[in-house]
Amino acid sequence: MDTRLPPNVQPIAEGAHARAIGLPKDSCPYPANSPERKAWFEGYDGTPADDGPDLPIADA
């Protein structure tokens, strides 16, 4: 059975793992401005980079 993650998910999982084991955020191994670096930080922070702030629910 193949348990490898798809290439676009792997940096996210690596970032989450880095945080879980206590590595600092600046330990990201990917080059600046790369999509992999952005994904790694999403995993580390636990939120998508494009996720905006939650807005209050308008009263109906």
Rank of each mutant, 00 (worst) to 15 (best):
D2G: 02
D2F: 05
T3R: 07
T3S: 15
R4L: 04
R4P: 02
L5D: 12
L5R: 08
P6N: 07
P6T: 03
P6I: 04
P6R: 13
P7E: 14
P7M: 06
P7W: 10
P7Y: 10
P7S: 15
N8K: 06
N8G: 03
N8E: 14
N8M: 08
V9P: 03
P11H: 01
P11L: 00
P11Q: 05
P11T: 01
I12G: 00
I12Q: 01
I12E: 02
A13W: 11
E14I: 02
E14G: 00
G15R: 00
G15T: 02
A16S: 14
A16V: 11
A16H: 03
A16D: 04
A16C: 13
H17Q: 13
H17T: 15
A18H: 03
R19G: 02
A20I: 12
I21A: 04
I21Q: 05
I21N: 02
I21Y: 03
G22S: 10
G22Q: 06
G22R: 04
P24A: 07
P24N: 07
P24W: 14
K25W: 05
K25S: 04
K25A: 11
D26L: 13
D26K: 12
D26A: 07
S27T: 11
S27A: 13
C28G: 01
P29F: 09
Y30R: 04
Y30Q: 01
P31G: 08
P31V: 11
P31L: 11
N33C: 09
N33H: 11
N33Q: 14
S34M: 04
S34P: 02
S34Q: 05
S34I: 03
S34L: 00
E36R: 07
E36T: 03
K38D: 09
A39M: 00
A39L: 05
W40L: 00
W40C: 04
F41Q: 02
E42W: 01
G43D: 01
G43H: 01
Y44S: 03
D45R: 09
D45V: 04
G46T: 07
G46V: 07
T47I: 13
T47A: 15
T47M: 15
P48M: 09
P48N: 08
A49Y: 15
D50I: 06
D50N: 15
D50F: 10
D51C: 14
D51W: 12
G52R: 07
G52D: 06
P53I: 14
P53Q: 13
P53A: 08
D54Q: 06
D54S: 08
L55G: 03
L55E: 15
P56Y: 03
P56H: 05
P56S: 09
I57E: 14
I57V: 11
I57M: 14
I57F: 13
A58E: 14
D59I: 14
D59A: 15
A60L: 10
